[in-house]
Simulated scan of single mutants.
Amino acid sequence: MLDLHTHHKRCGHAYGDLEDYVQEAILRGLPILGVTDHSPYFYSHENQPYKQLAMSITEFDVYMEEAVRLKRIYQGQIEVL
């Protein structure tokens, strides 16, 4: 069993941080967790034109850095994609 579709607080229609999802997946014994979310509308001049649908442009780099950091921290416990 694995989960390849997760949404987090950044997308505007979910709750919790990425790390909350990783820790919960470990508790449930999942070997793999796909970190996904709705990426920003990069074509827009607005930072976050649809607050309930996608993360803001300014959060994207932090989101990617966090995912890579969690992959490294939890290596050996779960594969974070």
Rank of each mutant, 00 (worst) to 15 (best):
L33M: 03
L81K: 10
T6L: 06
V35Q: 06
Y15E: 15
T58C: 13
V22P: 05
P49G: 11
N47H: 08
I57C: 11
G12C: 03
E66I: 01
L2K: 03
S39C: 11
V62T: 13
G76W: 06
S44W: 06
R69I: 04
D3C: 10
I73K: 15
Q77G: 01
L4S: 08
Y43P: 07
L27R: 15
H38M: 05
L81R: 11
I32S: 00
T36Q: 04
L27G: 05
I73F: 09
E19Q: 09
E65G: 12
R10F: 10
M1K: 09
G76I: 06
S39P: 04
K9E: 12
A67F: 00
L33C: 03
G34E: 04
A14P: 07
Q52P: 08
R28P: 00
Q23D: 07
Y41W: 15
A25K: 01
D37T: 06
P40R: 01
E79N: 07
V80E: 00
G12T: 03
I57G: 02
K9L: 10
Y43S: 15
N47G: 08
H38T: 05
L53S: 13
S39I: 10
L4I: 11
P31E: 07
S56Q: 07
G76A: 07
E24G: 08
M64Y: 09
V22E: 03
L2T: 05
I73R: 15
L70V: 08
A67Q: 07
Q75Y: 10
S56L: 08
F60Q: 03
T58W: 08
H5T: 04
K9W: 06
L33N: 03
A14I: 05
H7Q: 08
L81N: 02
E66V: 01
L2V: 09
Y43C: 13
V22M: 02
T6G: 05
Q75M: 06
H38A: 04
I32L: 04
I26L: 04
I26R: 04
I32E: 00
E79D: 10
G76T: 07
L33Q: 02
K9I: 09
E59I: 01
Y74E: 05
C11L: 02
V35S: 05
L53R: 12
I73T: 14
F60C: 12
M1D: 09
V80S: 00
I26V: 09
H45V: 12
G16Y: 05
A14R: 06
L30P: 00
Y50T: 11
D61Q: 12
